[in-house]
Design a protein around this nucleic acid. Structure first.
Length: 884
RNA sequence: GCGAGAGUGGCGGAACGGUAGACGCAGUCGGCUCAAAAUCGACCGCCUUCGGGCAUGGGGGUUCGAAUCCCCCCUCUCGCACCA
């Protein structure tokens, strides 16, 4: 997880912000100091089962893959989560906010193969480095809950869960077609097959049948789909993507009898959503992997060649993009279910998928575009059976487009005259009557294959015994740990090559047997970690009292790239854990927020090589030159930070230069958090200026005496206090709505208002008190975003106080101060703005209208006109409608 | 192809159906400086005969009033994609 982009170290050191006159906020000493203060106070620690009676709030960001360094995507992700965590905590919640490591995975094995470093060493060193970097961000995390999924203390429980699922019938071992890389000797995910070749080896990928472990996610398909409706704090598009992925469709499962049986096979099973078009049938097509295709291929060399070709080219982009359809006529024929004596050819076709439905279709070219393309290519009949509403049965014909719209059935015997839906029902009824089929619901979702031929993953805790079959590793022998002495000097799975590891005795019959050498897909590791955080030290996978208290996660935050797989697997896993008694909830994540990416301009030198941002210098006219050489540089697109384009910004360098608060402030201020943002140098510098300005506003109060709240405030003080309390209200509202960029804008407004008050300089009428109040509120309201500076400012305002802002409750706005002393009302004539008037709040309508009519511009616009309607919206607007 | 989302100044973006452009970035002018940096102040959608007019992708509609609601169209982004 979270490994989409990798940051590399900046090669050229950047210059420090120029040292300026006067004292400055020294983030270098302040940030570590406050981080220590929070840690020593244990501000962010919570109990597994709290007894403080506070409402719980569980904030979680997708845990990082320990690639080596944190990148800006992490900074954005964890800053967003930290704002939520700190805000909810201040609002009186007991907040669980943990962090850990998604630590198994292929990059560690690649490092082992490429550099000879053991995956464990590589992983743990990366974790140590990234932990240090994350701690510099000042996140309000309970670090005592940290774990890595590669620790036996974690994955032993995963093995236990697997065995519980096995007992509960939620896991099975079955044969399946997989992408097999013959050079690397491993199964590849579909995403790892590029143009028909393995992404690492470049070898042609083969389709191969392997025995694999599967989680029975399809058992939950209906529930996983219907429960999406209740996830009302998930983005609509994620719910939609999951819904499409699960892919429910209604139709009929039916069989066609072969005219003559083939190698003992006498019928073909078909799934269709269009049983109403059965009379339009002109062929039957089966997938190349279909058993019937295999038996034809066994006796027919041409068929065998065709199947082999499909197998090798099936996944290539060329075939998929052009949609070119290929087929082979087997010579076999099937009988029509309703038409006595009619038979149709059976083709093997490349566009029929073995994975979906039954791997066989009946072809109705009149009303399915693919079937039409296929029929035109091979000269098969095209018989229309659905007449469009305005169609003429005598002349309606199918040209190049199949007709898939609504209409009336014709050319179809007993179905004639029915509409499409009625005909579907009638056709299914007829199939049922003849015992040839039934109405079914079909799902696109497949069971989740979790076997990987990898070393750096969680061992699957089973033993294969020749006498007893598959035997679960007994609980008292868990965990099955990875052997450390492995080599990566040849392709394939090091566990399989290990001289002794897999050789064990069967736990049942004690005869020699073999350990399973496959490990789990790393998505398994991340499918329950959120629940483990509730009781990370327990001897049980989950402690019911802890998960019952904390789960579900109230706010989950991460990238959209996990919209389907990780989230769907986690939803399944939670249900499976419920079925096995480990947890009580169905849904793991009550709220989900998907953040946008962090992008940056890219730069290219004249010779075509990419340049790091540190290597270029911007000119005033927007062009850029190479630092030092002054050679011209092409400024490229703003795109996702990537190592290859060298448009990365190292968070460590930013924090060293500006401090964590600046990085956090800029990343929050730039735009709404669900959209992609552009990291810019000027934006970061602007954020840095703000932090310094806040400090100066606090510093300016050193000479302003403290004292009790005055009974009376002058005009300027009242204005400032209104700004302060309006800010409390509006920042709270913005934070509640994830509008962090708006919260930032409101805080700039408050800072501007304090600056205005500062320049007035007269403290006699309570302005000094009002300024202290405003600066304190500025600190407290910014504290979820820039927590270190908030502490620094608060401490300066309260010398000698031991209070931490992190422990203070969220301030409440004084309702009396949210009411303006006067309101500006817009005056329109026929909907066009003609002027504004100042009136007391909630002034009576006739007073306001009279004042509006008196306004000079309005009066001019109304002169000589007849007003037919006066619209008055209190405290908002007056609109005069005139005749004519 | 199917589905979803989005189009507002030079840029990122604000805006319960009620003064469009908050706030920031960039820019212009000025104060302070020998100068620069930092900082502070002012300006900053387009046109204008200085009355005002035009402006939220385009065109219609609803409304006293539309960036916002409805219909049609255009463009862009993302997701799924031979799913029978």
């Amino acid at each position: 997880m979270n490994e989409s982009s990798v940051t590399v170290a900046a090669p050229v050191p950047r210059q420090e912000p120029a040292a300026a006159d006067g004292p400055r906020y020294d983030f270098n000493s302040a940030e570590p100091r406050w981080q220590r203060a929070w840690a020593e106070r244990g501000c962010f620690r919570v109990e597994d089962v709290p007894t403080d009676g506070k409402p719980k709030y569980y904030v979680l960001e997708m845990f990082p893959y320990p690639s080596g360094k944190i990148h800006m995507g992490h900074v954005r992700n964890y800053t967003l989560g930290d704002v939520v965590a700190r805000y909810k905590r201040a609002k009186g919640h007991s907040v669980l906010h943990p962090m850990g490591w998604d630590a198994f995975g292929l990059p560690a094995e690649n490092a082992a193969r490429e550099r000879g470093v053991h995956p464990a060493k590589w992983t743990y060193e990366n974790i140590a480095n990234m932990r240090t970097e994350l701690k510099r961000m000042g996140l309000s995390l309970d670090w005592e809950r940290e774990f890595a999924t590669c620790q036996p203390e974690y994955y032993r429980h995963q093995q236990k869960l697997f065995l519980d699922f096995l007992t509960a019938g939620l896991v099975e071992r079955k044969e399946s077609w997989v992408n097999w890389d013959p050079v690397d000797g491993t199964v590849l995910a579909n995403e790892q097959v590029i143009d028909g070749r393995g992404w690492r080896s470049g070898a042609l990928v083969e389709k191969k049948q392997l025995s694999q472990w599967f989680f029975s996610i399809t058992k939950y398909a209906p529930d996983l789909l219907s429960a999406l409706e209740g996830l009302d704090r998930w983005p609509e598009r994620v719910r939609l993507m999951q819904s499409n992925w699960i892919g429910r469709s209604e139709g009929a499962r039916m069989h066609f009898d072969l005219a003559a049986s083939e190698a003992g096979i006498d019928k073909v099973e078909v799934y269709t959503t269009r049983p109403d078009t059965l009379y339009g049938m002109s062929f039957l097509a089966i997938a190349p992997e279909h058993p019937l295709a295999a038996s034809v291929a066994a006796r027919d060399p041409k068929a065998e060649a065709f199947v082999a070709e499909c197998r090798s080219k099936g996944t290539s982009e060329a075939v998929i993009e052009t949609g070119e359809k290929h087929g082979y006529d087997t010579g076999l024929r099937v009988k029509h279910p309703f038409i006595e004596g009619a038979t149709y050819p059976i083709w093997i076709a490349n566009f029929v998928l073995m994975e979906y439905g039954t791997g066989a279709i009946f072809g109705c070219p009149g009303h399915d575009q693919r079937d039409l393309d296929f029929s035109r290519k091979y000269g098969l009949d095209v018989v229309p059976v659905v007449l469009p509403p305005d169609g003429d049965p005598a002349s309606f014909a199918i040209a190049n487009d199949a007709y898939v719209g609504p209409g009336t059935i014709y050319n179809s015997d007993f179905l004639n005259g029915l509409d499409v839906d009625a005909a579907k029902r009638a056709a299914i009824a007829a199939l049922v009557e003849r015992k040839m089929g039934e109405g079914v619901v079909n799902w696109r979702l497949r069971d989740w294959g979790v076997s990987r031929q990898r070393y750096w993953g969680c061992p699957i805790p089973v033993i294969h015994c020749d006498s007893c079959g598959v035997v679960a590793v007994p609980d008292d022998q868990l965990p099955v740990t990875l052997p450390e002495d492995v080599t990566f000097d040849r392709p394939g799975n090091p566990l399989d090559h290990h001289p002794t590891w897999k050789h064990v005795n069967c736990p049942k019959c004690h005869k020699p047997a073999r350990r399973e050498t496959d490990t789990f897909d790393t998505f398994v590791d991340s499918s329950w970690y959120f629940a483990r955080y509730c009781s990370p030290g327990s001897d049980l996978p989950l402690v019911r009292a802890a998960v019952d208290h904390w789960m579900p996660v109230d706010q989950y935050i991460g990238g959209i790239e996990h919209a389907i797989l990780h989230l769907l697997y986690s939803r399944f896993f939670t249900r499976a854990m419920k079925a096995t008694g480990h947890i009580a909830v169905d849904e793991p994540f009550a709220g989900l927020f998907t953040q946008g990416m962090v992008n940056h301009e890219s730069y290219k030198a004249a010779d075509g090589t990419w340049l790091y941002p540190e290597e270029i210098e911007k000119r005033l006219d927007g062009t850029a030159v190479q630092r030092g050489t002054e050679l011209p540089v092409t400024v490229g697109r703003v795109e996702a930070m990537s190592k290859s384009k060298r448009n990365t910004i190292d968070p460590g360098a930013i924090i060293a230069r500006y401090g964590a608060d600046t990085a956090r402030w800029f990343i929050l201020s730039d735009n709404p958090p669900d959209r992609d943002m552009e990291w810019t140098e000027s934006g970061a510098a602007g954020a840095f200026r703000f932090t310094q300005r806040v400090f100066r506003l606090a510093e300016a109060l050193d000479s302003v005496p403290t004292g009790p709240q005055p009974a009376e405030f002058g005009q300027a003080a009242r204005t400032l206090r209104r700004a302060t309390h309006r800010c409390i209200a509006s920042v709270s509202e913005a934070l509640d709505g994830f509008a962090f960029n708006v919260a930032v804008a409101r805080l700039y407004e408050l800072a501007n208002a304090i600056g205005d008050a500062e320049r007035i300089g007269n403290n006699d009428d309570g302005l000094g008190w009002a300024r202290r109040e405003a600066v304190e509120m500025l600190a407290r309201l910014t504290s979820p975003m820039i927590p270190h500076l908030a502490e620094e400012v608060y401490a300066r305002l309260h010398p000698g106080s031991a209070d931490l802002v992190a422990d203070l409750p969220w301030p409440d706005a004084d309702p009396a101060l949210l009411i303006a002393e006067s309101v500006t009302i817009a005056v329109q004539v026929m909907g066009k703005l003609r002027g504004t008037i100042e009136v007391p709040p909630n002034a009576p309508a006739d007073t306001v209208i009279a004042a509006a009519e008196a306004e000079i511009n309005v009066a001019r616009a109304l002169e000589g006109k007849r007003v037919v309607k006066r619209v008055h919206v209190p405290n908002r607007i007056v609109n005069f409608v005139i005749a004519g």
